[in-house]
Write a protein that binds this DNA or RNA. Structure first.
Length: 633
RNA sequence: GGGGGCGUAGUUAAGUUGGUUAUAACGCCGGCCUGUCACGCCGGAGGCCGCGGGUUCGAGUCCCGUCGCUCCCGCCA
């Protein structure tokens, strides 16, 4: 069989654009067979491409009536024969005439539903085996199968839309930042490992045996060096790599809009991002996002929501009950307070009585749920109406004085029918984490979250340091190039009160997700040196890991700062999906493997030898062994 | 590293206290059909019940192990 001429795929239109205005035009469409409805002497084919679906009709009787204007009309029977051979996902070239549909046959579900294409010639460009799942919008297949045949999954309109929105978002970003004088500069993917932070992906160097590059966790140092170079305003759509465990919103490689500016301050950066988001939401969703965004300090976020990335689409804020129990006789609470712990809670409206009431089982499940976050218990108190008064109904009620019960009701603004949940723990982080997670869970369970809302806000004044139990030292909460807040600079230089110092670091939070994070950077060499010392790094470590950077700082560094916007998380929320896998073309599974290509895979011994790498003996049953088994089959 | 959920035709699921030949829908194959758009009607094929062990007269079902997918904790500056 000779090759087809490319005349067959010189499309005049896409499958999403023909309307009544094109009636009687002769057109050529190309696409995939979405469905075929064979009526014997009449065949309907829904032809699909990225732009939409157009109904194509093989109707020899109609065709015969319309003799005249075409000189290479096929034998009608031949057309029907070919039509009946067609199966889902075949690739077709269809030449035909656009026909308006009678009013009662218009399909209002299709953009092109007021017309159809009467086939004059139909050519099979490519056959397809029966796909492992039916390619349709409401896909009826497990994610495992979808990932194995990702190229088929990506034919679905939801996936195509997700990737299109992502493309739009990046395009808008480029235009916006170019308009603000930003320069797109690429930085290396093969770079130096910097042990602070996440685990690195390493790449062996063949020409330097035993030495490794690391894939960047972010271009942080490089973009700061660009500021020292006088690039003034830099951005990059930067791929980042982190070898840590995956989550629904975490992949080993992801992209961020990496931004850095010289001679800047927080207000400038906030306004820049607000402008970007406003424009993106307007152009993509035609939605007006109010700016400037609200701001919360880290402390306010923790006290009110228990997390540093609060979902503010619903209330259900945390209240403090520490004062109520300052002199309590209830030993459990008393010991928590005396050892520096916290007692906080939330009040759930209308959850004590009626149809929407929590059952004993619900309480047990929530108790179990908060235990995931370290909470040893969850107290619950139902507010019950007893005549004109209310009283608390709870396993712990008998331990609480009348005064405490009244104060509780008041502090939580609780009415009859409400339920108060309380967590008390010696470790304040457990109280925050437990209640923060409980608040979110109850918000979801009780439908308190407005799914169509987009709530942006800034979280500011993050702590500079947090203590690492594992490493027995303080580590930078953001990263070690972050400047202390001006008010805390003196204390920082005196090395005082490290856990209480605040950084000029900020996150942009959207619907409970951290969608961007940044800081003002240290531009003074002595401050940077003090920072490394605070992190308990020796001079040798500083030299070997960051010597080149310390050197660069000495040659005239402008004050600078920046931010990085997580592209996948933003798009995920924009298109309303739960996993960032849905906004990436070829994502990895939770074990960081690709089901389509089966990577990572075993490397040939020769390839390892060339790199002078030998493998340690594998544990029996390890994934490497099972991979080798797979290869043998 | 730890905890939860899932794994049965091509696909999505059902499968009772362990007991005949493992169901259904969609898809697939064949036939019929000129107005469908979830086309319709008739017929048919299709199973290592993830894998390996164990208990039992008998295992999709119970037990142990293992692999894979997923959600969460730790981790993710």
């Amino acid at each position: 069989m000779s090759a087809l001429s490319n005349e067959y795929w010189k499309r005049t239109h896409t499958c999403g654009e023909l309307t009544g205005e094109n009636t009687d035009q002769e057109v050529l469409l190309c696409g995939w067979v979405n469905t075929r409805r064979d009526h014997g002497g009449l065949i309907f084919i829904d032809l699909r491409d990225r732009y939409g679906i157009t109904q194509v009709v093989i109707d020899p009787a109609q065709e015969a009536q319309e003799k005249g204007n075409n000189n290479n009309l096929n034998n009608p029977n031949n057309l029907l024969d070919r039509g009946s051979e067609i199966r889902n996902e075949f690739v077709l070239s269809v030449r035909g005439v656009v026909r308006g549909r009678p009013a009662n046959m218009v399909n209002s579900k299709l953009k092109t539903g007021e017309i159809e294409l009467l086939v004059k010639d139909l050519t099979l460009l490519s056959r397809a085996e029966t796909p492992p799942f039916v390619v349709e919008d409401d896909v009826d297949a497990s994610e495992t199968l979808r990932l194995k045949h990702r190229y088929l999954d990506l034919r679905r309109s939801t996936m195509q839309r997700n990737l299109f929105v992502r493309s739009q978002f990046i395009q808008i970003t480029r235009e916006y930042l170019a308009g603000e004088n930003f320069m797109d500069i690429e930085t290396p993917i093969l770079f130096k490992s910097t042990p602070e932070g996440a685990r690195d992906y390493l790449v062996p160097s063949r020409v330097n045996p035993g030495a490794f590059y690391a894939l960047p966790q972010s271009p942080q140092i490089l973009k700061q060096l660009l500021m020292i170079s006088g690039m003034d305003r830099y951005y990059q759509i930067a791929r980042c790599f982190r070898d840590e465990d995956l989550r629904a919103d975490r992949q080993p490689e992801f992209s961020q809009i990496d931004i850095e500016l010289s001679f800047t301050d927080e207000e400038t950066i906030f306004a820049l991002l607000e402008g970007l988001m406003k424009r993106a939401y307007k152009e993509i969703l035609n939605m007006d996002i109010p700016t400037p965004f609200n701001r919360l300090t880290y402390k306010e976020a923790m006290e009110n929501y228990g997390v540093d990335k609060p979902d503010t689409r619903f209330e259900l804020k945390l209240q403090d009950a520490g004062e109520i129990f300052a002199n309590t006789g209830f030993n459990a609470f008393k010991s928590v307070l005396s050892s520096g712990g916290r007692i906080k809670g939330i009040c759930v409206k209308g959850a004590a009585e009626g149809n929407a009431a929590f059952s004993r089982k619900d309480f047990d499940q929530y108790t179990k749920y908060v235990s995931n976050f370290g909470a040893k218990g969850l107290a619950w108190l139902k507010v019950i109406k007893t005549g004109p008064e209310t009283e608390l109904n709870s396993p712990i009620a008998k331990f609480l004085s009348q005064k405490e019960q009244v104060a509780l009701t008041k502090t939580f603004s609780a009415n009859a029918g409400d339920v108060i949940f309380i967590i008390a723990d010696k470790d304040p982080d457990v109280v925050f984490a437990g209640l923060g997670a409980l608040r979110l869970q109850i918000g979801r369970d009780r439908g308190l979250i407005d799914q169509s809302a987009f709530h942006f806000h800034w979280v500011t004044e993050f702590p500079m340091f947090e203590y690492s139990v594992e490493e027995k030292r303080y580590v930078a909460k953001h990263h070690p190039f972050t400047q202390p807040l001006d008010e805390d600079r003196e204390k920082f230089l005196k090395d005082e009160d490290l856990p209480k110092l605040r950084a000029a670091a900020y996150d942009l939070v959207l619907n409970g997700h951290e969608v961007a994070g940044g800081s003002l950077r240290i531009h003074e060499p002595d401050i940077q040196a003090a920072m490394f010392r605070a992190l308990n790094m020796s001079e040798d470590q500083i030299q070997s890991q960051f010597g080149f950077f310390m050197e660069a700082l000495k040659y005239g560094t402008p004050p600078h700062g920046g931010i990085a916007v997580g592209i996948e998380r933003n798009i995920m929320i924009l298109v309303g999906t739960e996993a960032i896998r849905d906004v990436m073309a070829f994502p990895k599974t939770q074990k960081a493997s690709c089901l389509m290509s089966n990577c990572p895979s075993v490397t040939a011994p020769e390839q390892l030898a060339e790199l002078q790498i030998s493998l340690l003996k594998q544990k029996p049953g390890s994934s490497q062994r099972s991979d080798m088994m797979k290869l043998k089959n």
